[in-house]
Amino acid sequence: MIVQFSNGCGTGFSIVTARYYGSKNENELKKSVAASLILGLIISIVITIVSYVSMPYLLTILKTPKSIYHDSLNYIRCISAFLIITMFYNLGAGMLRAIGDSLRPLIVLFCSSIINIALDIVCITILDMGVFGAAVATVIAQVISTIICFFLILRKAKILIPRKEHFQIKSYMINDLLGQGFSMGFMFSIVSIGTIILQSGINSLGTQIITAHTAARKLISLFCLPLSTLAASMATFVSQNKGAQNYERIIKGVRLSNICGIIYPIFLSILIYFTAENLVHLLSGSNTHAVLQNGAMYLKINIPFFIVLSILLNLRNAIQGFGYKITPLFSSIIELIGKIVFTLFLVPTFKYLGVCFCEPIIWCLMASQLIYSYQKIIKPFKAQNY
């Protein structure tokens, strides 16, 4: 929830920067970068303090088993202590995407994930640091990715580097950045709140299910990187072209991103069908049949629905890039309500199978709402082009 809020703020800030880049207003672009850095610093400090203090209470509310409570607290407090790194990575990657550089942030994110997994193995199995080692691995990977992002900005994207006078921030800029940043931050957080509620249902199923689900979710996060990065790029892509008033290019870009989001999951689903249990074993270190079977089941059910997930992510970010704040937020509310319903009524009945089908069903509902909203938004521009 907390990390996703940081992700959302970074992406939201970059939407404003992208709009000024599209309209070729370099002075306002640099002001937006300067304001984003200041706001990012303030927001990250506040949420670090709040999250670090509140974690014991949140873990209790989540019904975290006593046998893993101490490890859970150490892990999440380590992540919370370095949220400033998370925030500034997202700012750096978002700013690169704002000026049309989508490839480098994707490469950095992919490399960071590989480094994270490698360090997980080193810290946990070789250095015997336990769960805390996983947190350390995550922080180190984020530090590396943040350094690389800002190095790339200094070397390859000097247009993003503000001067002293650009730090004299006006209220209109703060309002614009906070409006977009908080809109996306709350949108991502609402999604994560639903995930937290669902996690409370998963925790009641026992430690073997928790182990299986944790490994499967890590794999899902890795495999979802191309889709999530493509979707994040859509927000800035649409904002850039809105600034340039090139609506035909927006429509073509969204269509192409959806095609990519359909092709990738097809090949990934074939791969997962044959390797799911081995991948769960690799990440969990467990040979327990229940862990491998349940983790593999989650992957085999969810990954084919990446096609739906990709479309909803692309459309949600495209709508955000158009400047609409409430419509994308409404899709997140659908997800929150859906996960509450599953946690209260379906997970107790269908156990982990209910968890596996939870998100695919909700994704279909969200995608339907976003397709309808997107078609309404672009209808006037389609008519113009015709």
Rank of each mutant, 00 (worst) to 15 (best):
F5G: 07
T11G: 08
S14I: 11
I15M: 12
R19E: 10
N25H: 09
I42D: 05
I42A: 15
S44I: 09
S44M: 08
T48R: 02
S51G: 02
L58N: 03
L58V: 10
L58M: 08
T60V: 11
K66L: 13
S67G: 06
L73Q: 07
I76E: 00
I76V: 05
F82H: 06
L83S: 03
I85W: 07
F88C: 01
G92H: 05
A93N: 00
L96H: 02
R97Q: 11
D101N: 14
R104Y: 11
P105E: 08
F110A: 12
S112D: 08
A118Q: 05
L119T: 07
I126H: 14
D128P: 02
M129F: 08
T138W: 00
V139M: 07
Q142A: 03
V143I: 14
S145R: 01
I147M: 13
I148C: 09
C149D: 01
A157S: 13
K158I: 09
P162L: 14
E165F: 13
H166I: 03
F167D: 07
F167K: 08
S171F: 13
I174K: 11
L177F: 07
G179E: 11
G181L: 03
F182N: 03
F182P: 04
S183T: 09
F186P: 09
M187D: 07
F188T: 09
V191W: 01
I197A: 08
I210L: 06
H213S: 13
L225P: 06
L227T: 05
S233W: 06
A235H: 06
N241Q: 04
K242C: 09
Q245R: 12
Y247E: 04
R249K: 15
I250T: 07
G253K: 01
G253I: 05
V254H: 05
I266P: 01
F267Y: 14
I270H: 08
T275L: 05
T275V: 09
T275G: 04
L279H: 01
V280T: 07
H281Q: 09
T288C: 14
A290E: 15
Q293F: 13
A296N: 02
A296M: 12
Y298I: 05
K300N: 11
P304Y: 10
L309H: 03
N317S: 04
I319P: 03
Q320G: 02
F330Y: 11
I334V: 15
G338D: 03
T343A: 14
L346Y: 07
V347N: 02
V347P: 02
T349A: 09
K351R: 14
K351G: 11
Y352Q: 03
F357Y: 12
C358M: 08
I361D: 00
W363M: 12
L365E: 03
Y372L: 15
Q375Y: 15
A383Y: 13
